[in-house]
């Protein structure tokens, strides 16, 4: 079942890349449709981040001792300053480890 899922995702990803080059669709999409594309990755990745930070568990807010939340805020700052994937992850992870162990 996992294999089918991987292959299905692969086919969809390939089709997204191939369809414009195939000539099937017009390259002249409405402006509003083109504009919407820039928001999609942000709009889909943010819920995953929010969910992983466990800000709300069992319908209760979990903020005060939520070290992941604080580490994520520090990582956001690092991303703003350095714009580097490795630096962001390293600083976020180090902050989390320090806060949860001391």
């Amino acid at each position: 079942m996992i294999w089918s899922l991987i292959i299905l995702c692969g086919v969809i990803t390939f089709l997204i890349r191939f369809v414009p080059l195939s000539g099937i669709i017009s390259s002249d999409l409405p402006l509003s449709v083109k504009q919407s594309f820039k928001y999609i990755p942000l709009a889909v990745l943010t819920p995953i981040i929010v969910s992983d930070l466990s800000i709300m568990e069992n319908k209760n807010f979990f903020i005060i001792d939520n070290f992941k939340l604080y580490a994520a805020l520090i990582a956001t700052l690092a991303a703003l300053i350095w714009n580097n994937v490795l630096a962001t992850i390293s600083i976020g992870m180090a902050s989390f480890l320090i806060m949860s162990n001391f």
Binding site: I49, V85, T88, M93
Partner: peptide, 19 residues
Amino acid sequence: FLDLQFIIPLTFIAIIVPM
């Protein structure tokens, strides 16, 4: 001791912040 699952939101933060 490394909570590896936490790498995922950190990675996504690194991706979306510059966007």
